[in-house]
Amino acid sequence: MALSLVAYIREFARVEWAKKFLAARTAPLVIPPYFRNYPELTGKTCTHHLFCMMACPAPGAIDVIRTPEGWQPRIHVGHCIRCGLCVEACPNGVLSSGRILESMFLDNTRLSFSFAITVDLDRCMGCGNCAVACPVNKLIDAQMSHGGRASTDDLLLKVSDGKCHVLHVEKCTGCKTCEHHCPNEAISVARLLEAVHSPEEEPWTS
C-alpha cells in the first residue's frame, strides 16, 4: 500500500512536469524566413523605370531617389503595407522580399501594366490642365497651347469641343500627373496589374 503510494507520487511529481507547469512557454517568437517583409535591395542596378512606384498601392510608400551609386528605391516604413508588388513589378530584380523572386522564377510570371483613364464629362470644364501637364503629351507635342488644344491626333489627351478626350490610352505611363492637376477631379487614372506567364522572357534577370 505505502509502496504504491510512493510510486504514485513519484509518477506525478516529476521535476520536468513541475517545470513545464510553472514555466510554460510557446515556441520562441521568431519571424520565419519566408515572411514577406519590407522589400530589401538585392544590389542589382536600378534603371529608373519607376515600375515599383506605379505598382505600389500605398500612398508615400516607395520613392526612387538618386544616390552617389545611381538610382535606388527607398521603402518608407509606416507607409509600406508589405504587399510585394514592387518586387514583382521591377524588371531588373532590384528588390526582394520573402520568396517572391524565387516563386516568380519557378512559375515564370511577370506583372503586366495597363491603365484606364476615365473623364467625368459632367465635371470636366475643358481647361486642358491635364493635357498640358501630361509628360507623354509633352514628348509628342512640346508646343501644345495652354488650353490643351493641338493639331495632331497622336496625343494621349486632348481637349476638343470643350471637353477632354482620351485618344491613345495605350501611351499612358500611369504617372497620375493629370489627376493631380485637374482642378475639378474630373479625370482619374486606374492602374490595372495582371500577372502573366512569360514562357520566353525572363524579365527579372538583369
Binding site: P57, A58, P59, G60, G78, H79, C80, I81, E185
Partner: peptide
Amino acid sequence: GNCPISGCLFARPH
C-alpha cells in the same frame, strides 16, 4: 499598424 502612423491606404485626398 500603419494607420495611426501615416493613415496607411486611407491617407488620400478628400
